[in-house]
């Protein structure tokens, strides 16, 4: 079970894996996530679902190595198996409940930051198949970190790539592209932003004056991912919500991003300590 059927290295730190998980593939919907463990003593790591193929019975995940556990995931090879692979978890995107008539011709603006391109892909793919109009901004630090560009281009109407250093696409942050598109008179019925917390925060600030509804997907800390622990607590509209069962998607204008960013860093000191101890013998 949970065998890796294929693996693609997208950048030195980001890999794409197609994993055998028939029940999960049959149930997955855009907006949901899953949890994996790569070894018996391993952490439960929440990952976004990048794609699913119901006929092949597979789910595609995209992982960026940022700590010991994600490095371990990325070190697995084709043919290897995950110890555990569970989901789909969380609520599907709200538009999954919209009628086909409503979706046809609806104008969406998607904003994907870095690895955020991975969870954005199944959403855009779903909407594209339903006939929605999609503008997509894909931002990254530098050209090497732009992922899934061709895949995304194939399922949206217009793709705008931007990088902080200008090494690919426009030079600048996603917010400057947003401001330009709005200034040019583009209008949207719904916007979706997925990426680093800080990017989602500033996307919300940039879009709010336009009145365009904005949904964000929060990648909080989690343990079980099923509502049991509350590690993923976020404040939305002044109330505490669990990202794992109430989310992961929320109305961006109601999210307390500063708290969310602070909570995301809760174990950073411990991880650095642990990292420091265990570096020998690990791939960079």
């Amino acid at each position: 079970m949970f065998r890796i059927l294929s693996k693609r290295v997208l950048t030195p730190s980001i890999t794409l894996m197609e994993v055998e998980a028939p029940r999960l593939a049959a149930a997955a919907q855009p907006g949901q996530f899953l949890i994996v463990r790569a070894r018996e003593q391993g952490e439960r790591i929440p990952l976004t679902i990048c794609d699913y193929d119901r006929t092949r019975g597979t789910v595609t995940i995209c992982t960026q190595a940022i700590g010991a556990s994600t490095r371990l995931i990325n070190s697995l090879a084709e043919g290897d198996c995950f110890t555990d692979f569970v989901g789909p978890l969380g609520q599907p995107s709200e538009f999954v409940h919209w009628s086909d008539e409503r979706l046809r011709g609806t104008r969406f603006l998607f904003v994907a930051g870095g690895l955020g391109a991975a969870p954005v892909y199944p959403q855009v793919k779903y909407l594209h198949e339903k006939g929605a109009k999609i503008d997509l901004i894909a931002g990254a630090k530098t050209a090497k970190l732009v992922i899934l560009e061709e895949e995304l281009r194939a399922v949206c109407d217009r793709l705008f790539v931007c990088t902080d250093d200008g090494s690919r696409g426009e030079k600048g942050l996603v917010t400057s592209v947003i401001n330009r598109l709005l200034a040019e008179g583009n209008t949207y019925d719904q916007a979706v932003a997925i990426g680093p917390m800080i990017m989602m925060k500033f996307t919300a600030l940039a879009l709010k004056p336009s009145g365009i509804p904005l949904t964000v997907s929060l990648n909080t800390l989690m343990v079980d991912g099923t509502g049991m622990c509350g590690a993923c607590r976020v404040t939305v509209d002044g109330k505490t919500r669990f990202a794992c069962v109430d989310g992961p998607e929320f109305d961006a204008y109601e999210v307390d991003f500063d708290e969310a960013m602070r909570r995301q860093g809760m174990y950073r000191d411990l991880e650095q300590e642990k990292d420091h101890r265990c570096k020998i013998g690990r791939d960079a």
């Binding site: 049991m228 622990c229 509350g230 909570r263």
Partner: peptide, 15 residues
């Protein structure tokens, strides 16, 4: 209650 360092017993014990 959402400060860093506040846990449910469920989270602490599950960890």
């Amino acid at each position: 209650e959402n400060l860093n360092g506040v846990f449910s017993a469920n989270e602490y014990l599950t960890r």
